[in-house]
Design a protein around this nucleic acid. Structure first.
Lengths: 133, 133
DNA sequence: CGTATTGGCTTACACGTGTAGTCCATGAAC
DNA sequence: GTTCATGGACTACACGTGTAAGCCAATACG
């Protein structure tokens, strides 16, 4: 396992498309475009199509002809992409140090008490990982 | 305060340069290049110079001629850039939701007990913000 | 069936980015 | 003083990205 499929670099706009695909697949271009425009009406179908094609070329998506239209399927999982993007971000902006980054976020956004409690719970879970069945 | 100077978008490579500048300013191009090559010997001086010029054009750096050479000075603080980049990252990769992001990082990297304690401390501090002098 | 529409394929194009090279003036070294 | 090295300005160039338009075939509509 852990085949390291080498997640392609996903650009800003491409992320939006990918998330539309991850939201439910397989999905036709039409469906994907619908989701995109639902979230942001300024999306132009042609633009979305271009992005889909690029993502296929990049190896982030695959498609299968279904009749005369394509159904798209992600080739990389959201988890993988999130991990890759996070790693890159962490490296670039915080020089790879996790703690300053977490500190920044915790400070920058006022968390609600609940959010903080949840986060704390996460932390508990973290260091006793594997312990809880 | 909080003049919102509209932080310019700093690219991947430009971040390296900016961090070299933030590391100590004002600094001459030579000094900055030295820092860059110290961290990564593959840096080509010319490339660094190009980046410096671009950063000036972008409004991220300013310079002042000192004799026949320039001393550079950041126009945007690391804090500002970190905040902007973080915001953008959070938006793009986690759709703006802080909690999933924190969850991801806490899960993805095994934190040491101490790191977790520190983070917990941060959290405490967070919700009782302003309390600690 | 002819026509408008839909969906995919191809092409466009400007601006950003990574990565330098060239040109030129000035100052340092002899 | 002539030469070489340094430093900045300008130029280059390919590839990525955002943003589409044009072309063409099949399908749906009337």
């Amino acid at each position: 396992m852990n085949a390291q499929v080498k997640v392609p670099r996903i650009s800003e706009t491409e992320w939006e498309v990918m998330r539309a695909v991850w939201a439910g697949h397989p999905a036709t271009a039409g469906e994907i475009i619908e989701r995109l425009t639902a979230a942001d009406p300024t999306w132009h179908p042609k633009t979305a199509k271009t992005l889909l094609a690029r993502l296929v070329r990049k190896g982030a998506l695959d498609y299968e002809a279904q009749g005369r239209r394509y159904v798209y399927e992600p080739l990389v999982s959201e988890r993988q992409c999130v991990a890759a993007a996070s790693e890159s971000f962490l490296e670039r902006v915080f020089g790879g140090s996790l703690k300053p980054m977490l500190a920044h976020f915790v400070e920058s956004r006022r968390l609600s008490r609940e959010e903080m409690d949840e986060l704390r719970a996460l932390l508990e879970n973290g260091w006793s990982k594997g312990k809880r069945p």
